[in-house]
C-alpha cells in the first residue's frame, strides 16, 4: 500500500484523463498487464477501491501513469484530482502479459477504447527486449483513439474507427493488416466482444492469444473471490490468476 502524489492530471478530452503519479520513494517493479487498486475517498458511493490498469511506468522519473475513462462516480471523482493530491494505491496487483524470449517474435497488440492502457507499457517493455511490435488500436471515433504519439515510440501503429474518422473504417478485426501479416502471439485488451473477436481470429490462425479481463472486484488480491471468471480450471479469480489469460484457458 502506497501513497502517491498526483504530479499531473491531463484531461485528454471530456471522457478520458491521464493521471501521472509520483513518489518520493522508488516505485516497486511493475510488469505490463498488472493493475493497481485506487482508493477514491470515503464517500458512500465510492466505498470500494477502483481497479485501474498500469498504463506506463517511467522509472527514471519515478512516475506511474494511469489512463482512465470516466464511467461512473469513482472515475469521475478521480478525474477531479489536482496536482499535489495524495492517492492511496495497492500495487502492483495481478499477473502480466508474457514477454517472449525470442527477439524475432512477430507480435500484435490489439486495443479498443480505454483498453489500450496496458498495451503502451507492454509495447515499451517489448522494445526494451529489442522487439518492435505492431499496435492495432480501435475506437468508435477519432475521439476514442488515445496516446497515438506515445504508441508510435514503441512500435508500428495501425488504427480503425467505427465511423471512419481516423484510420481504416470498421472494427479492429476488419483491419487489412490481419489479412496481410502472420503473428506469433496476439495480445488484447478492450471491450469483451472485441477481445472475443480477436481471440476467434487468433484461433482461426492457430496463434496464441492473451487477453486482459476487467471483472468487477472488491479486494484485488484474492481474498473476496468476487471477480471470478469461468476457466478450464473452474472459477478462478481475475485479480490473482489474471487479469491476463491465455484464451485457451477461458471458456470462450
Amino acid at each position: 500500500m502506497l501513497d502517491l502524489i498526483v504530479k499531473e492530471n491531463k484531461q485528454l478530452n471530456n471522457q478520458y484523463f491521464l493521471l501521472i503519479l509520483g513518489s518520493p520513494d522508488e516505485l516497486p517493479e511493475m510488469y505490463p498487464g498488472q493493475f493497481v487498486e485506487v482508493r477514491v475517498d470515503n464517500s458512500p458511493e465510492t466505498f470500494l477501491r477502483r481497479p485501474i490498469s498500469i498504463n506506463f511506468v517511467d522509472y527514471k522519473r519515478n512516475e506511474l501513469w494511469l489512463l482512465i475513462q470516466i464511467i461512473g462516480e469513482g472515475t469521475r471523482k478521480l478525474s477531479t484530482c489536482k496536482q499535489g493530491d495524495l492517492l492511496n494505491l495497492l500495487l502492483p496487483l495481478g499477473n502480466s502479459y508474457t514477454i517472449p524470449t525470442n527477439e524475432d517474435s512477430k507480435l500484435l497488440l490489439v486495443g479498443g477504447g480505454v483498453g489500450i492502457a496496458p498495451l503502451l507499457y507492454l509495447g515499451s517493455k517489448l522494445k526494451e527486449k529489442g522487439i518492435i511490435c505492431d499496435f492495432l488500436l480501435g475506437g468508435r471515433s477519432k475521439y476514442n483513439l488515445l496516446q497515438l504519439e506515445e504508441f508510435s515510440n514503441f512500435g508500428n501503429v495501425f488504427t480503425t474507427t467505427e465511423d471512419g474518422t481516423y484510420g481504416e473504417k470498421g472494427f479492429v478485426t476488419n483491419h487489412s493488416i490481419l489479412t496481410n501479416k502472420k503473428y506469433d502471439l496476439i495480445y488484447s485488451c478492450g471491450p469483451t466482444p472485441m477481445m472475443k473477436a480477436v481471440a476467434a481470429y487468433a484461433k482461426s490462425k492457430n496463434t496464441e492469444c492473451e487477453v486482459s479481463l476487467e471483472n468487477t472486484m472488491a479486494c484485488g488480491f484474492g481474498a473476496c473471490l468476487c471477480c471470478v471468471t469461468d476457466s478450464v480450471d473452474g472459477h478462478v479469480c481475475v485479480c490473482t490468476e489474471g487479469p491476463v489469460f491465455n484464451t485457451s484457458k477461458l471458456k470462450w
Partner: peptide
C-alpha cells in the same frame, strides 16, 4: 459471475 455489487457504504 457477477457475484458482487457495490452499494452505498
Amino acid at each position: 459471475y457477477p457475484r458482487m455489487a457495490e452499494t452505498p457504504l
